[in-house]
């Protein structure tokens, strides 16, 4: 998946939860829930991998949230010829 787009989308989600009147931990939980509820595993996996490489440009809240999520097991579905 084009990572710039995923970063933009993840940061948008963080942007919303950042404005909610809840603790930082809860924000991260909400973001994590949102990602696991609405993002296909291959999108989450791409974001995990990107984070593993440093995650430049990601909202810190996204990084905290991702830390709570398991990297979805690699299925065969992303066996793209040129990788992602």
């Amino acid at each position: 998946m084009k990572i710039e787009k995923l970063i933009h989308m993840a940061n948008q989600i963080a942007g919303f939860f950042a404005t909610q009147p809840i603790s930082e931990e809860d924000k991260a939980v909400q973001i994590a829930n949102h990602l696991s509820d609405f993002w296909d595993p291959r999108m989450r996996r791409a974001l995990h991998d990107y984070l593993a490489q440093g995650g430049a440009g990601l909202d810190p809240l996204v990084c905290t949230a991702m830390a709570q999520l398991r990297r979805p097991a690699s299925g065969s579905e992303d066996r793209a010829p040129d990788g992602c």
């Binding site: 787009k5 509820d37 993002w39 296909d40 291959r42 999108m43 992303d78 066996r79 793209a80 992602c84």
Partner: peptide
């Protein structure tokens, strides 16, 4: 969850 339409298109460009 599966792919949404914009995600399908992204994943297509991506090859998955």
């Amino acid at each position: 969850p599966g792919l949404r339409i914009p995600n399908m298109l992204d994943a297509a460009v991506d090859g998955s």
